[in-house]
């Protein structure tokens, strides 16, 4: 069950697609893997795609929020893509806003946004 989430490198950007429901261990493992990969590759940006995810609770949201902040500290920009309407609504109702992160409708838009941000 403890499958790791694959992290792909595309030029100076890392792409992560979370394909199945995150359990606590996988989420924490992912946090660690991503930071290591950032360090190894000196990536400037990360896109995390959540399209298949149909719910996020406060724990997973916290892990995600932490990842975003840590990535920021390491000097990279993060775009979260594909948050489903139902997930967005539950997050808001839980009181979770993910304030300091860019969002985009899908991976394609997310990469566009990230490249624009990196050029600026």
């Amino acid at each position: 069950m403890n499958a790791r989430i694959p992290i792909l490198k595309l030029n100076e950007v890392l792409i992560v697609s979370i394909q199945w429901e995150l359990d606590d261990q996988t989420a924490i493992q992912f946090q660690e893997d991503l930071l290591n990969k950032m360090h190894e590759t000196a990536a400037l940006g990360v896109v995390i795609d959540l399209t298949p995810i149909d719910f996020i609770d406060s724990f997973i949201a916290k892990v995600l929020g932490d990842v975003i902040n840590m990535t920021g500290l390491m000097g990279a920009k993060v775009v979260i893509t594909g948050i489903q309407p139902a997930v967005a609504i539950t997050l808001i109702e839980l009181g979770i806003r993910l304030n300091n992160v860019m969002t985009a409708l899908d991976l394609e838009n997310g990469l566009d946004k990230l490249y624009k941000e990196l050029e600026a």
């Binding site: 979260i80 594909g82 948050i83 309407p85 967005a88 997050l91 808001i92 969002t103 838009n109 997310g110």
Partner: peptide, 9 residues
């Protein structure tokens, strides 16, 4: 508005 931001718009 906040939820709209989360889905990426």
């Amino acid at each position: 508005a906040e939820a709209v931001r989360l889905v990426g718009a």
